[in-house]
Nucleic acid binder design. Structure first.
Length: 257
DNA sequence: ATGACGTGAGTATCACGA
């Protein structure tokens, strides 16, 4: 079973790219972030034509997450449970083909010290608490998405210039590590522990993409039961080079069920 | 460098992202 995560930066602007990626890569499950659309604004017919069931938590203008699957989607949860105050569409979860999956869009955080940064850390705390519950189920669980945190300097093209900057600062890395150390496996880093230049996001500005100045901030976190059957994990850099690209590349992993 | 570039909202710029 192939599971892909991708921050599309507007599903309406990226529809043709999305359809092409679905045709080229044939993922069984797709975890999307930053739809920037309400559910009724998402053009679902063309996606359904490719054989996907769809669950969406949309929002006007900002955020928005979705799960597509070639298998039925059960137990759909919109938002992190027991987080009533969170009105931003940043989390959706479902069970499909016996695997629990979640699509996560962690807040950007703007800069350390800001209100948005505090909100980011709080979101990571709430996500960690919920993930702990899900891990207690002892099932195959894949939590993928745009975490907006580069876990280590190895995940950053120029660690000195990013030192204590947003996406790389110590508190957010500690929060991400606390989540990961509940028992998740970072699928890509597990298979390529020392690989440099392994990135998932490149700034639209300047020469970031052509000179591969990127960060690895999109991740697939696997429960132990999922990690036991992990066969492959790759960044698909192709779509980042297309005209009118998202600034994120899709990342996929393959589980041998 | 309060920069750059892209998207949505709305129709001139601004909020937001990373």
């Amino acid at each position: 079973m192939k599971i892909m995560t991708w921050n599309v930066n507007s599903i309406r602007s990226r529809l043709e790219h999305l359809l092409q990626v679905l045709k080229d890569d044939q993922p069984d499950v797709v975890l999307l972030q930053e739809l920037k659309a309400l559910e009724e604004q998402v053009p679902i017919e063309e996606i359904e034509t490719l054989g996907y069931n769809i669950a969406i938590w949309g929002q006007k203008t900002f955020n928005g997450v979705a799960i597509f699957s070639k298998y039925p989607l059960e137990d759909i949860q919109r938002g992190i449970p027991e987080n009533d105050e969170d009105s931003q569409a940043r989390y959706i979860e479902a069970v499909t083909n016996g695997v629990r999956v979640a699509s996560v869009y962690v807040p950007n955080g703007e800069a350390p010290g800001t209100d948005k940064y505090a909100y980011k850390l709080k979101f990571l705390d709430l996500l960690t608490r919920h993930a702990q519950t899900l891990l207690s189920y002892d099932e195959k669980f894949v939590m993928g998405g745009d975490y907006n945190v580069a876990p280590q300097d190895l995940d950053v093209y120029d660690p000195k210039s990013w030192h204590e900057k947003i996406l790389c600062s110590t508190p957010e890395r500690e929060h991400l590590r606390r989540l990961l150390y509940l028992g998740f496996t970072d699928a890509l880093r597990d298979l390529y522990p020392d690989e440099e230049n392994l990135y998932t996001w490149w700034d639209y500005r300047g020469v970031s993409w052509p000179s591969n100045k990127g960060l690895r901030i999109d991740h697939l976190f696997l429960s132990p039961q999922a990690a036991d059957v992990l066969k492959n994990c790759e960044v698909n850099k192709g779509p980042r080079g297309w005209e009118k690209a998202s600034d994120h590349a899709p990342v996929w992993c393959e589980l041998k069920l």
